[in-house]
Amino acid sequence: MWLWFAIGSSVFAALTSILAKVGIEGVNSTLATAIRTVVVVIMSWGMVFLTNVQGGVASISRRSWIFLILSGLATGASWLCYYRALQIGDASKVVPVDKLSVVITLVMAFLFLHEQVTVKSVIGCVLIGAGTLLMVIA
């Protein structure tokens, strides 16, 4: 089931890039990020109430709160950088560089989460890096 959600994520991420590139024209990138964030907040809390899981807030541990807040800050920083890059660069170049996050995530998962590194994942990282470089300089 995770694969279907991951595919959905990639399709919606692609739509996000194209829609944002069109929508950000003539709009300050920080303001555009703030507007996007408000929409995401409304949609997320709507889903919380629609699925009736709002009662779970009280049971979230202090550790989880800290890491969720840090994750939110990282997301905000990512979106601010992404929207600014998208505003001044071509979507066909910005998006592949943004997807280098796959390589960075695999390295961080190995270093911090002690996840296994396989020959397959190393080859994949090299190919993603090489593909990104090819798309950006071409």
Rank of each mutant, 00 (worst) to 15 (best):
W2H: 06
W2N: 12
W2Q: 10
W4T: 14
W4S: 15
F5K: 07
I7T: 08
I7A: 14
G8P: 07
G8D: 10
V11Y: 13
V11S: 08
A13K: 12
A13Q: 10
L15T: 10
T16S: 05
S17F: 14
S17R: 02
I18G: 06
I18L: 04
I18Q: 01
L19V: 13
L19S: 12
A20W: 11
A20N: 13
A20Y: 10
V22Y: 15
G23E: 08
I24R: 08
E25V: 03
E25H: 10
E25G: 11
G26T: 07
L31P: 08
A32T: 02
A32W: 06
T33L: 04
A34H: 09
I35P: 00
V38A: 15
V38R: 03
V39Q: 09
V39P: 02
V40E: 09
I42A: 03
I42V: 15
I42K: 02
M43L: 06
S44Q: 01
W45K: 06
W45S: 11
V53K: 00
Q54Y: 06
G56K: 03
A58R: 13
S59L: 04
S59Y: 07
I60Q: 03
S61G: 05
R62F: 08
R62S: 12
R63A: 12
W65A: 05
I66C: 05
F67T: 00
L68P: 01
L68S: 02
L70A: 08
L73A: 14
L73P: 02
A74V: 15
A74I: 15
T75L: 11
T75H: 08
A77Y: 02
A77G: 14
S78R: 04
S78A: 12
S78Y: 14
W79I: 15
W79N: 09
W79P: 00
C81E: 03
Y82H: 13
Y83A: 07
L86P: 01
L86D: 01
Q87Y: 07
Q87P: 01
Q87C: 02
G89E: 10
A91E: 00
A91D: 03
S92W: 00
K93H: 00
V94Q: 03
V95Y: 13
V95P: 05
V95A: 14
P96R: 01
V97T: 07
K99S: 06
L100S: 14
S101M: 13
V102R: 07
V102Y: 11
V103I: 12
I104K: 01
L106T: 13
V107C: 09
F110E: 04
L111E: 09
L111N: 05
H114I: 01
H114D: 08
Q116C: 00
Q116G: 04
Q116N: 15
V117T: 15
T118W: 08
T118I: 06
T118D: 11
V119P: 03
V119F: 14
K120I: 05
K120V: 14
S121W: 03
V122L: 09
I123R: 08
G124R: 04
V126C: 05
V126T: 08
V126S: 03
L127H: 06
I128E: 00
G129T: 03
A130E: 00
G131R: 04
G131K: 05
T132H: 01
L134K: 02
V136C: 09
A138I: 05
